[in-house]
Design a protein around this nucleic acid. Sequence first.
DNA 1: CCATGTGAATACTTTCACAGCC
DNA 2: GGCTGTGAAAGTATTCACATGG
Lengths: 236, 236
Amino acid sequence: MTLLRSDRLTAGAAERGIPDATVARLPIYLRALTTLADQGIDVCSSHQLASAAGVNPAKLRKDLSYLGSYGTRGVGYDVEYLRYQIARELGQTQDWDVVIVGVGHLGSALSTYDGFSTRGIRIAALVDTAPARIGKKVGGITVAPLTDLTKIVRKHDIAIAVIATPAEAAQDVADALVAAGVTSILNFAPAIVTVPEGVDVRKVDLSIELQILAYHEQRKAANGPESIGTADEVTA
Amino acid sequence: MTLLRSDRLTAGAAERGIPDATVARLPIYLRALTTLADQGIDVCSSHQLASAAGVNPAKLRKDLSYLGSYGTRGVGYDVEYLRYQIARELGQTQDWDVVIVGVGHLGSALSTYDGFSTRGIRIAALVDTAPARIGKKVGGITVAPLTDLTKIVRKHDIAIAVIATPAEAAQDVADALVAAGVTSILNFAPAIVTVPEGVDVRKVDLSIELQILAYHEQRKAANGPESIGTADEVTA
DNA sequence: CCATGTGAATACTTTCACAGCC
DNA sequence: GGCTGTGAAAGTATTCACATGG
């Protein structure tokens, strides 16, 4: 989750050193811009965009300032232009081929998720170890055996993989992915996977999110209901 | 994601004011402790536990210090005792009934996900609007119509809900959930939902995680491969 | 001696408030 | 006049390093 950056601001001309917290929000801004564009809006203020994205305007402007000065003082931002700049910064000018390992319920859900294609992400291959699943078609893609991994990664020039296996298999799959040449992994398995330097891992754990909510619920119940409020998700 | 805390340390006896970042890691420690217990380990050092959880020992000790002093100097932590203390802090001494709204691919995957039951979370009901889905059984639970929501929430005393609908429906569903009395929402729909004060929303966006990885991949490709390394997920 | 628990130092993030430009 | 872009201030989080107690 936290990546070291050897160069926050190195010598030379304006080395890009965008804070992690900002990078994590850029896709949200992108989505918000698309929403605005769909509404026929082609110029927006930081307030409008911030409200569509669920953040506050100062944070939005600070975030955008790391990319450059793409707004116009006294006016706002050109929706289409800003959308392009953020997409470029995120590397969405190219399409990223992704392989999903593990075609159970979650893997199937991911492979048919339609939010990927419009965001520069293409599910290029599905892989599993279960003989019952190999050869079956899911979302138009034939499930391949794990042993084909290296071949698949080479063929599609895949850098990013998704682990959607049970916890027990996660580390072995991660090792296989790294060996095959993958350098970024999104791990849905409820296990910590260890990878060599230079490989990024992000983790999404569905039950953890619910446990965090349960914690806050418990506190609401314990204290009076008046002692807690949300800052997030409240549009001014 | 960020919750206001009116009392970081109020008067009286040790008011609990655990930082958000720490709360987000407690479920990870819980999982790590379970792993250790399964290996027959019943006392562990902060190093052992930290390595199993994928964090560094200092952070772990600091996090645990917010809960109290549950370790023994010179020795370490009793696995079972610490596990209980964290579970209690997270509110897992009781079971939380949860309703999932939207029984598409993702909703189905969630309702059959077996990582919930052992963590104090019980899927009590499934709800959808599509007539084709209502009445069908998924993971042993019959899908109910959205109009039954209030009845269901009352019956099971539900505080926590999951939105797994398309983006367009998310806000309406959130409104219905709040009206029915739900006070915590986990939102998987790729949309920002607005809720009144006192209601917590957490958001998981599958495509955003991949976009963040793509950003880092792009940077690896652009710069020399030597200029980036990961701090996370590397066990010493 | 050992490993925890914790103040103090550092690093990062958010927010404020206003200078700068349209 | 209005809104962006940004230094500076405030607020959080992480890490260090050592006093503390078994």
